[in-house]
Each structure stands twice: as C-alpha cells, then as structure tokens.
Simulated assay, not measured.
Amino acid sequence: MADKLERYRSKRDPKRTPEPVPEAESPSPDGNAFVIQEHHARSLHWDLRLERDGVLVSWAVPKGLPADPDINHLAVHTENHPMEYLTFHGEIPKGEYGGGTMTVWDTGTYQTEKWSDREVKVVLNGRRASGRFVLFRTRGDNWMIHRMGSAVRDPFPEVEPMLPVERARPPKDASSYAFEFAWGGRRLLVPIDGGRTDAAREHPWLRGLAESFGSRTAVLDGEVATLGRAEILVFYDLLYDDGRSLVEEPYSARRAALESLDLNGAHWQTAPSWPGDPGPVRKAARDQGLPGVIAKRLDSPYEPGPSSSWLFIPS
C-alpha cells in the first residue's frame, strides 16, 4: 500500500520543526474535515486542506479563496499533510521547509460533489469559508480555484480621490466637522487584497502593511508626506473594509473604522483628527510648517473629486 505521507516526511525533520510527523495516516471519524491555514512564509498564502482517505490533500492558494465567481485564483497542489494538521499552528523555524508563522484561519466540514485527478468540487461549511468551490487542473500540475454561485463581498470601489475646496476661514458650524492637518504630500489610494497591494510596485515598503492585513480586504486613502527626512504614508480615510464598501457611509463612521485598524508602523500611520475646534489645529499646523488644515463634515459620504464637504483652510 502506497505511503501517502512519504513526500511530506521527506521534507521535514521532526528534530528541527514543531510540525507533526506521524508514522501513519489517521482518519477522523467523519472523514470530511477541512482546514485553511494562513501561512506567513517566504510569501503570504493560505493552505487549503481537505481530508481524503486518511490524509489532508493540500493546495497553497496565494490570494486566498476567491470571493467573486468572475475571478479565479491560483491553487498550487502540494504534498499530502497528516490529519494532525487540522489543528496545527505555530512557528516553523527559518530555513526549514515552509519556514514562517502558521495560524488556523478556518476549519469545518465539507461535502464532496466530485473528486477526480483533474477536478475537485466541494461545499465548504466553515465559520469564515462557506459555499461551493471547484479546484480544477489547467496545464501540467497547475490548478485554479473557482467560487460557484454569487459574490460574497461588495466590489472594490473604483473612485477618484475626494478633494477639498479652499476657504479663507473655518466653517461657522465647527461642531459638524473634524479638523486634520493638510500634509502637502502626494495623494495615494491603497487597495489591499489577499495580503498584497498594487501600490507596493511604486512603494515596496508597503508590502509589509499589506501582508499584515492577512485575508482582510481594504481600500485606504492618504498621502505620502515627508516628515523631517523620512517619507511616510499618512492614512485619513477608509473606503472599503473586509468585503464592504464604505463610500456611502458618513465620514464619522469611516473614520471610526479606520482608527480600529490601528495603522501605525515605521512607514505609515493614521493621521490625527480633532472634532469641533479648529483653532488649536491651525496653530499646530503653522508651528510645524504645514500648509493648513482640512475641515471634514462628519456626516458626509465619500464624494470623488472636489467637494464642499471637505474644506482646505490655509494656516
């Protein structure tokens, strides 16, 4: 009888890695378990593992499960894993195969609709992953994964940045606004999906930010500003969060969602915001040599292009 874990064992030394390295297969009672692990290895990916005949048949999915049936994701067929991997999480030492942090992203059961050498069609029943999926072989050993049915998240908003209009003085109803620094930087929208962002092509240091989001999707709005000698990205709005568009939400709700992300790193931070009183903010802007402040109506949706809901007031 063929050893279904031979390839798995050949890649791992139990003396050097905390991963389970059992001597034999060990099927679960029901035989239909699955697990998805978030794997921060050389590159972030998600490992989908389906129980089949005493082992976990596995695919590495670089962008995670597709949320939209119109977009298929690459799924790299990897070696079978032991059943103990249903609950495995931890740090695989650097230099070992698959070195990096692994966490259980979701687990549950599944139903098989079809299983062949070229096509695997299943229904996942998990807390975070649910629905019908098909894994299909393309050329050679290449595989893709496709979501069947309807999309499970809002489409990414394709909008131009919202821009302030200039006013000489702060608005009279200051309690209806939040006041922020005008940074004088270059505007940048940052979409994040599958732990990656296209903005990293121009700013490679954003790869770490995108990877920190894991499977969470987002579109952030901000500016690349120079503070002292350092270039830093300051974020002040959130247009999309975890599968839901926020462009129709009031600024106060978008701002609260942004702050909950706690975006503070070596190259990025959440811009401060103060509701109600523009005086101290204008003085601080002048003291720091900034061009002015932006007044943002708390009840305003995100309106692409120039909008009177955002006001630029010179220092």
Score class of each variant (00 low, 15 high):
34 F>Y: 13
256 A>C: 01
91 E>T: 14
218 A>Q: 02
174 A>L: 01
167 R>P: 01
133 F>S: 05
106 D>R: 10
207 R>L: 06
116 S>P: 05
128 R>D: 11
22 P>S: 04
75 A>N: 09
217 T>W: 06
181 F>E: 13
268 W>A: 06
40 H>P: 00
129 A>K: 05
46 W>I: 10
307 S>I: 09
151 A>T: 12
189 L>G: 03
221 D>Q: 03
137 R>K: 15
235 F>S: 01
188 L>F: 02
78 T>Q: 11
178 A>E: 07
140 G>M: 08
19 E>I: 14
294 I>A: 02
219 V>Q: 12
235 F>W: 10
265 G>E: 10
120 V>E: 03
181 F>N: 11
38 E>G: 12
115 W>C: 01
120 V>R: 05
237 D>P: 04
303 E>N: 08
127 R>S: 11
233 L>I: 13
170 P>F: 10
130 S>W: 04
161 P>G: 11
174 A>K: 07
127 R>I: 05
188 L>G: 06
250 P>L: 14
241 D>C: 13
271 A>G: 06
20 P>H: 07
196 R>D: 02
305 G>E: 04
178 A>P: 01
147 R>Q: 06
141 D>C: 00
204 P>S: 01
68 D>N: 13
230 A>G: 02
226 T>W: 05
22 P>K: 12
275 P>G: 07
58 S>A: 15
286 R>P: 00
264 N>P: 10
33 A>W: 08
212 S>R: 04
25 E>N: 08
149 G>M: 02
149 G>L: 07
43 S>V: 13
123 V>I: 14
269 Q>L: 15
253 A>D: 13
90 G>L: 06
210 A>Y: 07
299 D>A: 14
163 L>S: 10
227 L>W: 11
305 G>W: 00
53 D>H: 09
234 V>K: 11
303 E>D: 14
305 G>N: 02
281 V>T: 13
22 P>T: 06
292 G>M: 09
84 E>A: 15
21 V>I: 15
275 P>R: 13
297 R>H: 07
48 L>C: 08
108 G>T: 01
90 G>M: 03
182 A>F: 09
184 G>T: 08
16 R>T: 07
130 S>H: 12
301 P>F: 03
197 T>M: 05
136 F>C: 00
155 P>M: 13
95 G>L: 03
182 A>E: 15
90 G>C: 07
90 G>A: 07
98 G>W: 04
18 P>M: 06
249 E>Y: 10
299 D>P: 00
292 G>H: 04
177 Y>E: 08
